[in-house]
C-alpha cells in the first residue's frame, strides 16, 4: 500500500512535469466552451447561405439539445482522441527508459504499477471531463435556461466510462507491445473494429462504442435508460478484464 501511494504520487508529479495535466485541462476546457458556441453559431452561419435558384436555408433556433449534441460529438471525437494521444506513452515511456527496473527489483509488486497508473490516469480524465461538463453546462444553462435533461446522470456517465475503457486499453496495449505505437495502434484498432461491428444491427445494443456517440438519444428521452444498461455493464467488465489481463501479461513479461 505504501508503494502504491508513493508510485501514484510520482505519477501525478510526472503528469505535471510532462505538461499532460495542463494539455488535458486546456483541451477539455476548450471543448466545453466550443460546444455551446457551435450550437449557437451554426444556424446563423447557415441562414446566410443562398444555395442558388432562390433556395435559402432556414435553420430553426438552436436549443439546449443542440448544445449537448455538440458536447457529445466534440468529447466523443476530439476529446477521446486527445485522451488517447496524451496517455499513449503511459506504459511505453517507462519501459523504454528502464525506469521501472530499479523499483521492481526493490520489491514493488508489478500489479501496483498497473493499478496505480490506471488510477492516476482515471483521476486526470475524470477531472478534465468534469471541467468540460461544468463549463458546457454553465454556458448552456445561461443561454437556454431551464432546459429539461432526462437520464442526465447515465448519459454523462456513459461517455466517461468509455474514456476509462480507453485508458485500460492503452495500458494493455503498452504492456503487450512495450512501445508507444503498440499502445496507440491497439487502441485505434479496437475502436475501428468496434465501429465496423456497429454496422450489424443486433450488435449495436451491446457495442461499447454506443457509449461514446449514442448517449444524446438518452438525454432527449428518445431512448430509455434500460436500453443502455447492458452496454454499460459490458463496457465495465471489458475494462476490468483488460486490467486483469495487463497484470497477468506484465507478470510474465521480461523487462
Amino acid at each position: 500500500m505504501k508503494s502504491f501511494v508513493a508510485f501514484t504520487k510520482k505519477e501525478f508529479t510526472e503528469s505535471l512535469r510532462t505538461y499532460r495535466l495542463v494539455v488535458l485541462a486546456a483541451v477539455f476546457l476548450l471543448l466545453g466552451v466550443m460546444s455551446p458556441l457551435f450550437a449557437k453559431i451554426l444556424p446563423e452561419l447557415l441562414s446566410g447561405v443562398d444555395l442558388g435558384g432562390g433556395i435559402v436555408i432556414t435553420a430553426p433556433d438552436p436549443t439546449a439539445m443542440d448544445s449537448w449534441a455538440q458536447f457529445f460529438k466534440n468529447v466523443g471525437q476530439m476529446g477521446m482522441l486527445t485522451l488517447i494521444i496524451t496517455f499513449s506513452g503511459i506504459i511505453a515511456n517507462e519501459l523504454n527508459r528502464g525506469t521501472l527496473i530499479i523499483l521492481l527489483t526493490k520489491g514493488m509488486k508489478r500489479h501496483t504499477v498497473i493499478l496505480s497508473k490506471f488510477l492516476s490516469a482515471s483521476v486526470l480524465w475524470t477531472a478534465s471531463y468534469l471541467l468540460c461538463l461544468t463549463v458546457c453546462y454553465a454556458y448552456t444553462e445561461y443561454f437556454w435556461p431551464a432546459s429539461i435533461l432526462s437520464n442526465a446522470f447515465l448519459a454523462f456517465f456513459s461517455i466517461w466510462l468509455f474514456g476509462e475503457f480507453l485508458i485500460a486499453l492503452l495500458i494493455f496495449g503498452g504492456i503487450l507491445f512495450g512501445n508507444l505505437y503498440g499502445s496507440l495502434l491497439t487502441c485505434l484498432g479496437v475502436i475501428v473494429t468496434l465501429s465496423l461491428l456497429n454496422i450489424l444491427p443486433y450488435v449495436q445494443k451491446y457495442n461499447p462504442i454506443a457509449l461514446a456517440g449514442g448517449t444524446l438519444s438518452l438525454l432527449n428521452a428518445q431512448k430509455e435508460a434500460a436500453d443502455f444498461i447492458p452496454v454499460t455493464i459490458i463496457c465495465s467488465v471489458m475494462a476490468v478484464s483488460l486490467l486483469v489481463m495487463s497484470i497477468v501479461v506484465f507478470n510474465k513479461k521480461q523487462i
Binding site: 510532462t18 505538461y19 494539455v23 483541451v27 486527445t82 494521444i85 496524451t86 499513449s88 506513452g89 508507444l180
Partner: peptide, 9 residues
Amino acid sequence: PVLYFAIGR
C-alpha cells in the same frame, strides 16, 4: 500542441 507535448517532445 497536443501532439507535441504528448509524443513529439
